[in-house]
Structure formats: C-alpha cells, structure tokens
Amino acid sequence: MSFSNKTIWITGASSGIGKALAIELSQQNVKLILSSRKLVALELVKKECKNAAEVKIVTLDLEDYNNLQSKVDEAISCFGTVDILVNNGGISQRSLVKDTQISVDKRLMDINYLGTVALTKALLPHFIKNKKGQFVVTTSIVGKIGTPLRSSYAASKHALHGFFDSLRAEHHRDNIAVTLVCPGFVNTNVSKNALTGNGTPQQKMDSATENGIDPERFAKQMIKVIKKKKEEAYIAGTKEKLAVFAKRFYPKLLSIMIRKLSVT
C-alpha cells in the first residue's frame, strides 16, 4: 500500500511515538492531521515536518470522550477526508494494585479505552460511507501480558484488543482494516507522565524505558506494519516478544517469570 496523497490522522502526536511517526510520515507525500491536548507542542512538531502546508492541527482531549464528534468533523474538513486514524494517544501507570485509587483506574480507562473508542466510533460512519479506511491502534505488549505496577494500564490496553478485534470482524466487508501495534519499551516520556496510585505523575524515567527502542526507529517499523495492514504486530525487544509467545504456549512458566519482576 502506498501512502501517497492519503490523509493520516494521529492522536498523541505532540511527543514520543506520535511525534516521531508524524515526522517520518511527512517524508512520504501524505496529508497529516495532528492531535493532542497541547497546541504549542503540536505546532513545534508541525514545524519539523517536511511539508508543513500539508499538516493540520486539531486539538482534542481523549478524556472528554462525550464531545469528540465535533473533532472528527473538524478533522474531515481539513482535507475533505480521513484515510487512516492512528489511535496513539494515551497515558500509563506505575503503582501497585493495593495502592491505586479507583479514580486512577477510571482515568486510565477514560483516556486509553473510552476516549479511543469514542473517537473511533465517531469516525466509523465516514469509513463506512467511503467503503475504505484503516484504524491503527497503539496498544502495548502489556495489552497481551499483565505485569506488576501496570494493572490499570494493562486493563485499558487489553480492552482495546477486545474492542478492535470485534470491530475488524464486523466491518471487514466495508473494506475497513484494523492494525493493532504493540510496543515494548520505547524511549519516550511515557514513564515520566505515568500516573501513580494517587493520580499524580511519576515524574521519573524507568530504566527499562530509558533503554528502550529509539522513537524514530520505532516509527519506521510501525509505518511498515501500517502499510502491510497487519492485524497485529509486536515492535519490541527479543525478551518481550518471547513473553508474548510464552503467554500463548507456556502461560504457567510466564507467570512464574513475571512474579520475579521487581514491584518496587
């Protein structure tokens, strides 16, 4: 599949994977719509893109999931259509189950799951009408395997897999593709912004995240996955990929290994 002249909408585009994806895609003759809550940061990303004239900004807050239809209408009006929506926006978590307030669980689900689902549902009629479209979803290896300190985050990502697997089955005949991209550790600010048990940001970088895949390299691999319209892909280190394999074929062994992970 060629991206030439396609309109690609990216949420969570102000930093990390979304930013790297936007800059890399701008080299491929596409029209881009960039979204997040942070207008100033989005404008800086736009300046780094190759052809800024073909980049539009639509600010949105996934947590405000009852008011996303107007954002979809605004996005469609930018270039007259949307061909691919990259659901990349979200937030992570770092806290033990026993220390995590239920309000934190709710916020993770509101942003990562309900916000993504609401935006997808609002755009879906446009894809159905056009008889084409692709939903790309940045989930996580943790969307396949729950690990310590990430219970709410893992739950929100697992939920995305269930929803989008169902959507894919329902709308295959409408020529609508669904691609679930599962990152392992990527060197972004995700761990700094992760919520702790009382809802405040962690404000420090995890060592595993700091040593993760470079966002630019990740974006290049993600673009290949999107082009191939893969149903599910794991862009991660060898250990993380092996863990997905073990979860399927040797779940008891994986459980024993996960118990040994640090929870402090």
Score class of each variant (00 low, 15 high):
S2E: 15
F3M: 05
W9V: 03
I10F: 00
A13G: 14
G16M: 07
G16Q: 03
G16D: 08
A20T: 08
L21C: 02
I23F: 06
S26F: 06
S26H: 09
V30F: 05
I33K: 00
L34D: 01
S35I: 00
R37Q: 03
K47S: 13
K50Y: 13
N51Y: 07
A52Y: 05
A53S: 14
V58G: 11
D61R: 04
D61G: 10
S70Q: 13
V72N: 03
E74Y: 08
S77W: 00
T81N: 06
N88G: 04
G89M: 00
I91W: 03
R94G: 04
K98R: 14
Q101N: 11
D105Y: 15
I111N: 00
L114F: 15
G115I: 07
G115A: 11
T120G: 00
T120Y: 00
P125W: 02
G133D: 05
Q134T: 12
Q134E: 15
F135T: 05
S140W: 09
I141G: 00
G143L: 04
I145S: 04
G146T: 14
R150V: 08
S152A: 15
H158T: 08
L160W: 01
F164G: 05
F164N: 02
D165L: 08
S166H: 04
L167T: 09
R173L: 15
I176P: 06
L180F: 06
V181D: 13
N187K: 15
A194K: 02
L195P: 10
P201L: 07
S207L: 10
E210F: 11
I213V: 14
P215D: 07
E216I: 13
R217V: 14
R217Y: 03
K220V: 08
K227N: 12
K228W: 11
G237F: 08
G237N: 13
K239G: 09
K239N: 07
V244G: 06
A246H: 02
P251I: 04
S255M: 10
M257W: 10
K260L: 11
V263G: 00
T264D: 10
